[in-house]
Design a protein around this nucleic acid. Structure first.
Lengths: 222, 222
DNA sequence: CTATAGTGAGTAAGCGCATAGTCATCGCTG
DNA sequence: CAGCGATGACTATGCGCTTACTCACTATAG
């Protein structure tokens, strides 16, 4: 029997407080209400059970439509995943490239702003972010490559902020690549455990992780 | 067409240097060579494509056997995953509970030893660790609960080390739960990107992350 | 009348797993 | 040590079910 064991149905997912976040606000404005609803349903299913354990039936059920209705709005299940992951990656990058961050001059203030914004974004959209971070293997090779390129740009933005502080002496002479990767790890890994109804708001967690990030690059006081 | 799009075949996986690690040394000694080979093949497939995108044919092909041969040694595909995840979790825990670590008295030295060992273990067995961390949704509810219990004990071991340093004043009065979670995130997230043929050996990365961990709890010098 | 959203009823193919049988190996008997 | 039944690893075949996706069709709105 090829029975797949997706342990949670569409109904379970809609009621689960661990799967509530602000992902429904992410989708492109030019999409219709039904398409955005399908994306929201898909994001929940993919986050809870994984891309391959989710059926087109699950996604459609989440918005009260028949399985075939999915194909009126999307040409394939993979393209639903791609739309989610692409939009997610683009939104984070533009969230970092706002004047509120790029205008900050001091290296420490700038790094703080970046880590705080990046972390809070992942917390606020942790369900979609989980799909963005953990379901990349569901993409076709071509789509995967496109996403990797966006990730490269995001990581470079992070790394530049660390490198700038090291260059002007406001940070300790740390290994830029390794320290940057550690900061990214902190923010990314929260998609595994974060929930909006927990003790930390996205903003609070963002500030907490920004504090940690600055400790990692603090100039030696000995 | 219900074709799964596992992007990598058994042959690709055996040749991929990113999927080489020390996982083959993990399996129980009382298992036969064929069973251990199947586990090693399964770990590669699960790590590269995910549990649901991996077929029993993929696993068997990886050791040059027919699909049905899997069922001579394991009663189901899920139990292959369970064996991998269970052994992985047990091995980390016993790797932390060695006298080499539990005998260390000073809070800082002890935390350093724990983070270093935990990180290095994940790096050395990063392929199996990836399955342990990211494929938990493939388990049945009962098996999932068992694994969560082992994880709880491992996390408690970590948290105690942080709490001890805070209590005796050798660490700053940090938020124990949040800081512990951040340290765990650093080590766990490396399963997404680490490779043995990269610039960092497991031991070196372990020491690097132990340094970072101590910075997170360093008493304020201002 | 045209265009769009949606459906019921499929289809081809892939899935986990079962069954029946092959074959090499082994312990036991005389 | 020949002869033989028992055992266990392994395979060829394929069943019963699920999957992503299709298509002919209907309902509705402009």
């Amino acid at each position: 029997m090829a029975r797949r064991q997706a342990r949670f149905t569409a109904q379970d997912l809609a009621d689960d407080p661990r799967l509530h976040d602000h992902s429904p606000d992410l989708w492109r404005e030019d999409l219709g209400a039904v398409q955005r609803g399908l994306l929201t349903s898909a994001v929940r299913c993919f986050a809870a059970n994984g891309f391959h354990a989710t059926t087109t039936r699950d996604i459609a059920e989440g918005v009260g439509l028949s399985p075939a209705a999915l194909y009126v709005h999307f040409p394939s299940k993979e393209l639903v995943l791609y739309e989610i992951i692409r939009v997610g990656h683009e939104r984070v990058l533009e969230h970092l490239r706002t004047p509120a961050i790029t205008a900050v001059e001091g290296a420490a203030d700038r790094l703080r702003a970046i880590v705080s914004a990046y972390t809070a974004w992942h917390a606020r959209h942790h369900v979609a972010a989980r799909v963005c971070q953990l379901e990349l293997t569901g993409l076709t090779a071509e789509h995967y490559d496109e996403i990797v390129e966006v990730r490269r740009r995001t990581n470079a933005f992070f790394r530049d902020a660390v490198a700038r502080g090291v260059a002007d002496g406001s940070f300790a002479p740390v290994d830029v690549n390794r320290v940057t990767r550690a900061m990214l790890s902190l923010s990314i890994d929260l998609v595994r455990w974060y929930r909006l109804d927990g003790p930390d708001s996205p903003e609070r967690l963002g500030e907490f992780y920004a504090d940690l990030a600055l400790k990692l690059v603090a100039p030696c006081t000995a």
